[in-house]
């Protein structure tokens, strides 16, 4: 089946088996390997991407279901050569260790901060509760997301952090 998606702003078309999972379409066909696979059961969120701006777990969608939609992966976060404030904050706040959950966490954070730029600790924890991290204990992930929210609200102040 033909599937056409706009992935990180670029329209891509592929001819795929109907059963091909979205995560495999992204990783194997479009060769964007920043999206990871952790559990196969929609539990861990390592495969999270944004589908029309909403976080979805790409291991539990077929590629063809994304036909005609917009997808954002971690590779789409950098804009104009600049780190997204969420990326800068994850580094600054030590919000990652092995890095495997990080793309999914950052994309969930993006969706959260776009509707709520100043989330409380509880709001962040609820928002990322579909994503598992085995390394960090979440402490610095929460801090990073809150810091990114502040930076996005005051873009001039964020320049130093992303340098």
């Amino acid at each position: 089946m033909r599937v056409t998606v706009t992935i990180n702003g670029v329209e891509r078309t592929a001819d795929v088996e109907p059963r091909l999972l979205l995560v495999h379409l992204i990783r194997e066909v479009f060769e964007l390997t920043g999206t990871h696979i952790g559990c196969d059961t929609t539990s861990c969120g390592a495969c999270t991407v944004l589908l029309d701006g909403m976080p979805v777990k790409s291991c539990t969608l077929f590629g063809v279901q994304a036909d005609g939609h917009e997808i954002t992966t971690v590779e789409g976060l950098v804009q104009g050569g600049q780190l997204h404030p969420i990326q800068a904050a994850f580094k600054e706040e030590h919000g990652l260790q092995c890095g495997y959950c990080t793309p999914g966490m950052m994309l969930v954070a993006k969706a959260l901060l776009e509707r709520n730029p100043t989330p409380s600790d509880e709001e962040v924890r609820w928002a990322i509760s579909g994503n598992i991290c085995r390394c960090t204990g979440y402490v610095n992930i929460v801090k990073a997301i809150q810091a990114a929210g502040n930076a996005m609200a005051a873009p001039t102040a964020s320049a130093a952090a992303s340098a």
Binding site: G34, T35, F90, H94, G99
Partner: peptide, 21 residues
């Protein structure tokens, strides 16, 4: 010191086993 390894991970440019073809 902020971590040297983070620059690739935050960009989705790590090289995990399944990423190799």
């Amino acid at each position: 010191v902020r971590r040297k390894e983070d620059d690739r991970f935050i960009r989705g440019k790590g090289s995990y086993l399944d990423d190799f073809k």
